[in-house]
């Protein structure tokens, strides 16, 4: 069976990145927005692993970077969810439209 070409994988990851961006801009629920951000970060992970495997298999830079991104994304999600929970206690809502006291 033939190997999947690199361009296919890059199509997937780029698509995933922009789906994440679209989700971040259109969704109004904070948890969903966080999920959209995770999509963006995961598309970057795919990029790194694919580049490492196809183009530079002699060094492991890309794999290392992926491990760090996964770890940091987990930390970021933890802090973000804590903030959203706190926001829910204050506002009784996790819709971003309701958290709009400050404008301009």
């Amino acid at each position: 069976m033939n190997e999947i070409p690199l361009s296919h994988i890059l199509f997937v990851s780029t698509g995933l990145f922009f789906i994440g961006m679209y989700g971040l801009f259109t969704r109004r629920n904070m948890i969903t927005m966080l999920m959209a951000i995770e999509l963006m970060l995961n598309s970057v992970n795919i990029n790194f692993v694919a580049f490492n495997k196809y183009l530079y298999p002699e060094k492991l830079d890309g794999i290392f970077f992926t491990i760090f991104i996964i770890t940091i994304a987990a930390a970021e999600a933890a802090v973000a969810i804590a903030i959203v929970i706190h926001l829910y206690r204050n506002h009784k809502s996790i819709d971003v439209e309701d958290a709009a006291e400050m404008k301009w």
Binding site: M40, A80, H86, L87, H91
Partner: peptide, 15 residues
């Protein structure tokens, strides 16, 4: 306002 600011900050910095 404080939690709203924190939410805005973490979303935009993650983006």
């Amino acid at each position: 306002r404080s939690s709203e600011a924190a939410m805005k900050y973490i979303m935009s910095s993650a983006f």
